[in-house]
Design a protein around this nucleic acid. Structure first.
Lengths: 157, 157
DNA sequence: CTATGTATGTAATATTATAACAGGTCAAGA
DNA sequence: TCTTGACCTGTTATAATATTACATACATAG
C-alpha cells in the first residue's frame, strides 16, 4: 500500500517536508515568510486538501490577517514554488509530498474522507504530451485528478 | 492536425452532434427539453468552454429564466448524459464531441483562445487505474486537463 | 539612511454555485 | 376523466470561492 494511505506518524513526515521546504527556499533565494510557512504547516498537518477559507480561518485564529488575499497569496506562492498543489476538482490545496523532485503529479482523491495522494505517473504525462504533439498542441501544464475510494474507506464501505 | 484545431464548417459538426444527441436521448428515454437543447446548441455554437453565467446570459436574452439554477440544471443534465463535459480548470463547460461513444476524455485547453479539444487517451486511463489499484485505490472518475497553446495560437506567438 | 522592491493588511466586490420552495406540464393508472 | 406523481422550470435568497485596488510595513542594496 502507498505510504499516504498507511497509518503513519504524521508529525514526522510533516517535519521532514517542512525542513526540505526551508532548504529549497533558501537555495532559491525565495522567502518562506511566517505566513507562508504557517500555511505550509497547516496543509502538512491537515494531510488533506483544504479550501482557502479553511486555511484563512486558522490563520485568523492565530493573529494573521483575516481577509481572503492573505490566504490566497500564501497559497499561490506555495503552488508556484512547488511546495503545494491546487486540486481543481475540490477548489482546494494540499501540501506537496515531493517538493523539489520535479514530478508530474496525479492526484487520487477519496470521495469519502477527502484524503489526497500523489500517484507516480511520469509515463502517463509523456504519453499525453506525445498525443498532444501529434495534434499540434504544445502542452504546458497538466492536471490529472481521479476520484474514488481510498483503501480505508473502501473497507468501511 | 486534429479536426478541432482545423478550420472547419462549424454549423456542420454542430448539427451532427445535435442530431446525435437527440437520437441518444430518445433511445434512453431522457428528455431533451427546449432549455436543455438550447444550452447544448449554445455550447456547440461556441465551440469552446463557456461559463455557466455566459450560458445563462444567452438563455435570458432568449426569454428563458435568468437565474443561475436554470443554467446549472441544464448543464448538469448534459454532463450526466455525457453530452457535455465540465472543465474544472476553467469552471466552464463544453459540448462533448463524442457523445455516446464511452470515451475517457483528456482535454487540451488553449491558454490564449480557450479552445478545448478532446484528446484520445484510453490507454492513459488504463495506466492510471493500474497504478491506483496497486496503491489500493479504486478509481471512479478521472479528469485529465492540459493547458498550453493550440496550433493556431502557437503560430501567432 | 533612503530608495526600491516585495510582503502584508484591509475594504470592497466579482465570480461561481447551491438551497429551498412554488408553480407548471405531462403521462400513467384509478 | 380525473387524479396522482414524477419531473421540469422559475424565482428568491444565500453560500462559497476568488480578485481588484489601495494603503502600510518591512527588508535590503545602494
Amino acid at each position: 500500500m502507498h505510504p499516504t494511505f498507511q497509518h503513519h506518524d504524521h508529525s514526522h513526515c510533516a517535519g521532514d517536508s517542512l525542513a526540505r521546504a526551508e532548504a529549497l527556499m533558501a537555495e532559491r533565494g525565495a522567502r518562506l515568510t511566517p505566513v507562508r510557512k504557517r500555511v505550509l504547516e497547516i496543509l502538512l498537518e491537515a494531510h488533506k486538501a483544504l479550501g482557502a477559507y479553511d486555511v484563512l480561518q486558522r490563520l485568523a485564529a492565530e493573529g494573521y490577517g483575516n481577509q481572503p488575499p492573505v490566504a490566497y497569496r500564501a497559497l499561490d506562492f506555495l503552488v508556484e514554488q512547488g511546495l503545494a498543489h491546487r486540486i481543481q476538482r475540490l477548489n482546494a490545496f494540499t501540501a506537496c509530498m515531493h517538493a523539489g523532485e520535479a514530478h508530474a503529479p496525479a492526484f487520487l482523491i477519496c470521495d469519502r474522507c477527502a484524503t489526497v495522494a500523489e500517484a507516480p505517473v511520469a509515463p502517463i504525462r509523456a504519453a499525453l504530451e506525445a498525443a498532444a504533439a501529434e495534434m499540434g498542441f504544445a502542452v504546458e501544464r497538466v492536471s490529472l485528478e481521479a476520484t474514488g475510494l481510498c483503501p480505508a474507506c473502501r473497507e468501511a464501505a
